[in-house]
Amino acid sequence: MQPSVLLQNNLQASINAKQQLLKDSTQLGVFETAVKAVAERYQKGGRLYIAGNGGSAADAQHLAAEFVVKLARDRVPLPAEALTVNTSILTAIGNDYGHEHLFARQVTGKMTEKDIFLGITTSGQSGNILKALDACREKGIPSIVFTGRDGGRASEKADYCILAPGATTSTIQEVHIVLAHTLCEYVERIIFQP
């Protein structure tokens, strides 16, 4: 297959997934409720904490940067943290408690009831995201998950589960980026109204 044909196929898969989400009133409704919950947490002095593995870890860092720096308008920073960046914490938790506790331990140690958690997992089965969602529930912290396919076990544990359409991890991740940017843009508009 020629590179241009592969690109056309991948672009079409991305377009199809986004069009499918565009027509899914149930998922759009869940997304709207989740995004409003994030804005409400910020308005009450809370923070957004984000976690994921692999490419989703990069997406968590990307989204945290959009909140702290800016996305669509110049404004004061909004507190957000990716739970994927402190190598000393990550390696210590992994070594002492196991990889599945990487995020739950941080949720327990850093987050309060004023905050909100966003887990990103294309499969909905990432053990460390599942444990983080359990920790959120134990602490009374609202949780959102961006996932794909059938949502996996994460769909049962999160307060808000947004399913990104797509047959491949890469397509699901492309939809996750649109969700993340829209989340940040909405919060900016609500908190920093012109």
Rank of each mutant, 00 (worst) to 15 (best):
N86S: 05
T169Y: 04
Y42F: 06
L90F: 03
K131D: 08
S155L: 04
L28I: 08
A37M: 05
T91A: 00
H101N: 12
Q193R: 15
N53H: 10
A180G: 15
V175C: 12
Q27A: 11
N53A: 11
G98A: 01
I89V: 10
I15S: 15
P3K: 09
A58K: 01
F192T: 13
L133P: 02
I141T: 04
F192Y: 15
S56A: 02
A92G: 03
Q173W: 00
R75A: 10
H101W: 10
Q61K: 06
L102D: 07
I129M: 04
R75L: 10
R189T: 13
V69L: 02
K114P: 00
G152P: 06
A154E: 00
A104M: 01
K18N: 11
K110H: 09
G166P: 06
V5A: 13
S170W: 03
A154S: 12
S126G: 10
H99S: 11
R73N: 10
S126P: 12
L133A: 02
G109V: 03
L63T: 15
L163E: 06
T122H: 09
T182V: 08
I172A: 07
E174M: 11
P77W: 04
R153I: 04
I191C: 14
Y97C: 01
I120D: 05
D159V: 02
G151C: 01
T121I: 04
E66H: 08
E138Q: 11
A17F: 12
V175G: 12
I177A: 11
Q20G: 11
V107K: 02
E174W: 06
Q12H: 14
P77Q: 06
I177Q: 14
D59V: 03
A180D: 13
V175L: 12
M111E: 07
K110L: 13
V69Y: 05
D59E: 09
A180N: 13
V85E: 12
E138S: 09
L11N: 11
Q125K: 13
A37S: 08
Y186F: 10
P142A: 07
N16V: 14
N86T: 03
Q125R: 13
Y160T: 06
E81H: 12
C136N: 05
L183Y: 04
V35N: 00
A82N: 07
D59C: 03
A80R: 04
A64N: 06
Q27V: 08
S14L: 12
I116R: 11
I120W: 04
Q12T: 15
N128I: 01
T87V: 08
L130E: 07
E174I: 06
V5S: 13
R189K: 15
Q2H: 07
A104G: 06
G94R: 05
A57L: 02
A39H: 00
E138I: 04
N53F: 05
H62G: 11
A65N: 08
Q20T: 15
A132E: 04
D96V: 00
T108E: 14
V35Y: 00
V107N: 03
R137V: 00
R41E: 00
G119H: 07
D150P: 02
C161S: 14
A180Y: 05
N9I: 05
Q27T: 10
